[in-house]
């Protein structure tokens, strides 16, 4: 086992455990959010190991730094952590969910991941994830989707203000 593999396994273990924690700590939304931040943070590092520098740092900036702060803000503003935890009745649903999840995992693993398991190495140069190369493609080939995404963000801004304001 090489050093890179060890690094990946450690990062993956943290990310995986944090993901489980998000669901397991669901009765305490602040802890769930915190674990999700950890997951996103570590995911940023996994992106770095994939050579995608720009996206790794964007992951940390957008998800860990902005979106999750928004989540925490809403949790604390609605005082969700002080409400009595929702009693999880209907245990059958939980068991069923885990069963279906397991089934999905097994099916996808067997049909998609097993055939690709042995693939390693890549012909892609390391500079494929730098801001320069990403920016060049984003503002030439993908300029129309980029503009549409910015319009979508604008609509999101307007929509969230519309929803949040009591009266305009």
């Amino acid at each position: 086992m090489t050093a890179n593999q060890v690094v990946f396994l450690v990062l993956a273990a943290i990310a995986g455990l944090a993901a489980v924690g998000v669901v397991a700590f669901g009765n305490n939304p602040v802890r769930a959010a915190l674990l999700l931040v950890l997951n996103f943070f570590v995911l940023g590092f996994i992106y770095f190991t994939l050579g995608a520098q720009l996206l790794g740092i964007s992951q940390i900036m957008v998800y860990a730094g902005a979106i999750m702060v928004l989540f925490l803000f809403v949790i604390m503003m609605l005082q969700l952590h002080q409400r009595s935890p929702i009693v999880e009745g209907r245990e059958g649903r939980g068991v069923l969910a885990w069963l279906f999840g397991l089934a999905l995992a097994v099916v996808v693993f067997a049909s998609v991941i097993v055939p690709l398991m042995s693939v390693s190495g890549s012909p892609i140069g390391d500079e494929y994830g730098t801001p320069q190369s990403v920016g060049r493609v984003l503002f030439t080939t993908y300029v129309l989707p980029f503009e549409i995404a910015s319009v979508l963000l604008l609509i999101g801004i307007v929509g969230s203000i519309l929803l949040a304001k009591r009266r305009l």
Binding site: S58, M61, G65, T130
Partner: peptide
């Protein structure tokens, strides 16, 4: 290559301690 973005990303994590 992403030096300045790194500064922005890490500074955006600064809020968690306070919150």
């Amino acid at each position: 290559d992403i030096g300045l973005l790194y500064v922005l990303a890490i500074s955006s994590l600064g809020v968690y301690g306070v919150v």
